[in-house]
Each structure stands twice: as C-alpha cells, then as structure tokens.
Design a binder for these strands. Structure first.
Lengths: 217, 217
DNA sequence: CCCAACACTGCACTCAGTTCCAGATTAGGA
DNA sequence: TCCTAATCTGGAACTGAGTGCAGTGTTGGG
C-alpha cells in the first residue's frame, strides 16, 4: 500500500523493531483488549457495548474500529497468532516422526499457552459458551488452522500411500487427519472443562489421542 | 377449509396430525425458506435484506421473525433435523458393529441427502464460504450433533476399556471419536468441492475414513 | 356461536458495522 | 527548521439485524 515511503525507511534501514508507529499501534491494541476483556468479565459480553469499551479506553467509537474489525475480534484475535505458532511447532518436529505423534507434540504449544493462564482460559471458555455467535466464530478460526497445517501433514503422509481399489483422484487424507487431531484436542478441552478442570489436561489429551490414533500409523 | 366444521375433533382427539395451526405454520416456514434461498442465490446472502424476503413472501418484517429467529436460521435451520436423522440412523445400526463402522454407515443418511440435490448442496456450500458468520454458525450447528451421538457411541466403546497407567477419571473418548469421524466427513466434502465435484463423494469418504480409522477398533 | 389463542402489522428502539469528511498529529525527508 | 504526506482521530449520518410492545384482526376448536 502506501507504506512504501514512510514505514520502509526506518524499519528496513536499522532492522530493529517494526517502527514507532507500529509499536504504538500494538500497544493501543493491547490496552483495548485488556479493557474490553475486563468489561466482558464484569458485565458479560453481550451487555458490554463498543461505546463503553471505547470510552473506558479513552477513545472514540470510530477509533475502536481502527484497531478491531469487530467486537468478536477483540476476543478471538489472538487465535490467529496461536495457529501460527502451532504450524511452526509442527514444522520443527523431526522428519521421521509420524503425522499423529507430530501433531500431538505440536499441541504442546497450545497446552503451554493454556497452562500459563488456566483461570483466564476457563473464563474465556465460559464466555464462548454463553454466546453462540462467539462460539461459532471460535470454531471457524480454529478451522483456519487446518490450512496452515496441511502442507506439513501432507508431507508426512506421503503423496498417495495406497490408492485403493477405486481411486478417486481426490486426496482428503491430510485434512482429515488434522481434523481428527483437532477434534481430539477440542474433546479433551471440553471434557476437562465439564469435569471442573481437575486432572491435568495433557493427560486427558494423551488418553484421547491414543484411543483415536489412526491404525494406519 | 371445509373440514373445519365437520372436524369431529380430528386433530387433538385422534392424535394424528400436528393440528391445522401447526401445519400452516410449517407451510409458511417452508415458503419463506424457498423465497429466501431463491433471493440468496440470485443476489447473494449479504445483499439480501430481511425486508426483501418478507416483501416477496408477502408479509411484514415482524412476521418474518415469528418464523425464524435470525437471517442465518433460514439457511441453517434444516441442520437440526439432519442431526436428528443422523442420530436415528446411528441408533439403528446393529449392536455388534464397532463405533467407527457404525458412524460411517450412519453418514449414509447425510450422503443420501447430499446426493438428492447435489447442485443445491454445492450452492449452499458456496454461500457458506462467502459469509464468515454463516460458515461459523454452520460449524457450530454441526458441533451440536456431537451431543446427540455421544450416548450411542459411548455405549459401543464400553465404559472404560483400558484405563491406562495414569487414569484421569475423565472420559473424552466418545466425543473425540465422533469429532474425528465428523472431521473426516467435513474433509471429504471440502476436498470433493475443491475438486469440482468429480468422483463420487461416498468413495472419497470411504478412503478418508479408512485412513483415519482408529487402530483401537 | 363464542372466545381465547394465535397471527399479523407498524413503530420505536438498541447496537453493530460502514462510510465519509475534516481536523490534528507526527514521522521523516529536504 | 520547515514541509508534506501519511496516519490517527472524532464525529455525523447511514444501513441492517434483532427486540419489545401495543393494537388489531383472524380462526381453531370447544
């Protein structure tokens, strides 16, 4: 876009941060998120309006929309970054490892994120359960993770293992394997939540992924 | 309606139909759906307002909301019934069948629904891809299917097969198995769509579910 | 034949999200 | 130092979804 003249000079020349403008932008975003999450926790998601968030953060409604495209994004924005780190973790698994094990180990990144703030994760989960649209968007974001993971898993599965008697010419296996693994993760989290968060989550996930592990591996 | 006078207390007394009121209600609902889907197909989902739908259907905006709680529901309402028939199909599988095979066979109900109107299914799919909120809600609805299927799958898996060395006391296996199977279905449909709908969908699903089939079965 | 239940409508309202404009700020080059 | 262009900001006006209500039919069924 127009960042050619402005942003490039400082950023590329010194190669340090992403430039002052970008840094302040991130800071404002972060504060906006903090303020919003606090209000959501106290008043509930639906009962909190964007006007309130903006007012508490000391800015206008218009400015809010310069930082987040929607109210939902304030809550779910971090999921994009999380998906990115998941893909990274998967990429760095040893080449010989089978797809299922690699996925399980990559999930450790998410579990770590989860373990760092269990109470926050719990609160977020309850917020999702209370708002259908929010819960739906959450699922959608997680589905976006598939696409990032496909190339890595496809490489581990090989091009076309056993075409079978009636080959369709369509290979949906990588996506299915990823989907199955993510379903395990989701099931583990839900059961863990439903049971009041006793027992370590990673053990639950281990148990589940051992049960569902495809026989092909 | 001549049958009104000679009614003999037909509706309530004999317990056959759901009563005239309910029947007309269903009819209006159906027509509203037809009208809306037609407009969506011609103008696009976002570009079609509820006012338009109501106008074409010959009623007021207020009345529209008496039949559908939201615009999205017009599109996704049938998914509830579909989940119900899926659960029924699963319940009627032979008792000895393993969980994975039972799920695969139960999916035949969905494939049949799909095969009955491939073009409509394709159009609906494209509509979902074009609208994030709609796609998200679609996922959410399908997640609602889990809960209906859990009891049936839990019964087939048995209470606690092999508790493992570090038992957590949390059993997320049924949900995970269901999630994995649904992920296969979703992956098959997506790949099938992406490939332009050549090759029979059921073969793609067979291939995928054979690959992902848990080794435990 | 009656009446309670239900159907339909219009209206006013809230809130999310978009678009446009005008002014303030500031980064970085001349 | 000053200039300029990009970005940030606030505000107003707008659309459309969804809610609540109050008034007015309409009819199913006893």
């Amino acid at each position: 876009m127009a960042e050619a003249s402005g942003g490039l000079g400082l950023g590329s020349g010194l190669g340090l941060g992403p430039g002052l403008r970008e840094r302040t932008r991130r800071a404002v975003r972060a504060e906006l998120m903090t303020v919003a999450m606090d209000l959501f926790a106290r008043k509930g998601y639906d009962a909190t309006t964007i006007d309130e968030i903006a007012a508490v953060a000391g800015m206008s409604r218009s400015s809010f929309f310069r930082y987040f495209a929607s109210k939902e994004d304030v809550v779910l924005d971090h999921l994009d970054a999380l998906g990115e780190s998941l893909a990274e973790a998967l990429a760095q698994r040893p080449a010989g490892e089978d797809a299922w094990t690699a996925l399980r180990r990559a999930f450790d990144v998410l579990l770590a994120y989860h373990a760092r703030d269990p109470q926050g994760a719990r609160g977020l989960r309850q917020m999702l359960d209370g708002n259908p649209a929010l819960r739906a968007r959450n699922l959608d974001k997680q589905c976006g993770w598939h696409d990032r993971l496909i190339p890595h898993i496809a490489a581990r599965l090989g091009p076309a293992p056993d075409p079978g008697p009636a080959d369709t010419g369509i290979n949906a296996r990588p996506e299915a394997v990823i989907g199955a693994a993510l379903a395990c993760l989701e099931a583990a989290k839900r059961a863990w939540m439903a049971a009041g968060c006793r027992a370590p989550l990673d053990k639950v996930l281990d148990d589940v992924m051992r049960t569902v592990r495809p026989g092909a591996f």
